[in-house]
Amino acid sequence: MIAFWILAPLMVVCALGMVVVRKAVHSALLLAVVMVGLAVLYAAQDAPFLFAVQIIVYTGAVLMLFLFVLMLVGVDTSDSMVETLPGQRVAAIVLGVLFAGLLVVAVSQATYGAAFGLEAANADGNVPGVAQLLFSKYVFAFEVTSALLITAALGAMLLAHRERLTPKATQRDMALQRMRDYAERGVHPGPLPSPGMLARHNSVDTPALLPDGTPSELSISRVMRAHGTVRDVSHDRLIAAEVESDTKQLGPSRTLDRQDEAGER
C-alpha cells in the first residue's frame, strides 16, 4: 500500500501534466512515467507477468513508437495553446470533472467484500496460471488477436510505404551528376572542407575559417544552417590570429627549404 500511496499522486500529476504541456515530446515522457507507475501497481497486485509485459511492450515498444513518429513529425514542434473552438475547453473541463466525480462516487459507494486474493490462482506461479487460462479458455481470442497483429503490421507497412515515381539513383549516376555540375557550373566536386588545422573542434558543426578569419559558407551543411545549430567560431579566430602573428615574429622557420637556399647546410 505504501507503494500505492507514493505512486498514485505522482501518476495523477504526471497525467495532468501530459495533458497540459506544450511540447509533444514532454507529453510522451510524462506518459512513460505514468505507465511505469502502473507497472509497479500491477506488481503490487500479484500480477508480475503483467508488470513485465507493461514495461516491455507498452512502455518499451508502444511509447517508443510514439517517440519515433514524433521525431518524424518534428520533435521541436509545439502546439499553440490557444483554443479555437469556443467553449470547448470550459466544457471539457466541466465534463471531465463531472465524469471523474461520478466515477469516484460510483466506485466508493459500492461495497465490496474482502478481496479474494490471488494466492489460489497463483498457486503454480502467476505465469503458469495465466498460461493455463490463455491457452484453454481464451485460446480462440488469442488466435484472433495474433491475426490482428499480423494485419496491423501489414497495414502499417502499406500505409507508410512510399511509391517511387522515378528510378532510384545509383552510385554511378550520382558520381556522373557531380562531375557534370563541376563541368557546367564549377561546383566543387569534393567533400566540404574540414574546419582546418587551427580549428579547436573537429565536429561537423564547426565552420572552417577563411584567410581573413571569416567562416566559410561552404564548410557548413545546409541543414545545419537552416536549423541554426552552427557553432560560433569568432573566439577561435582571435586565437588563430595570435598564432599567425607569433609565427611571423619567430621569423622564417628552419625547414629543408632554407637549407636549399644556403647551397649547403
Binding site: F4, A8, M11, V12, A15, L16, M18, V19, V34, L41, A92, I93, L95, G96, V97, F99, A100, L103, V104, V107
Partner: peptide
C-alpha cells in the same frame, strides 16, 4: 485512481 486517470485522459 483508475477513474481519475480515465477522466484525465478523456479531458
Amino acid at each position: 485512481l483508475s477513474g481519475l486517470l480515465f477522466s484525465i485522459g478523456a479531458m
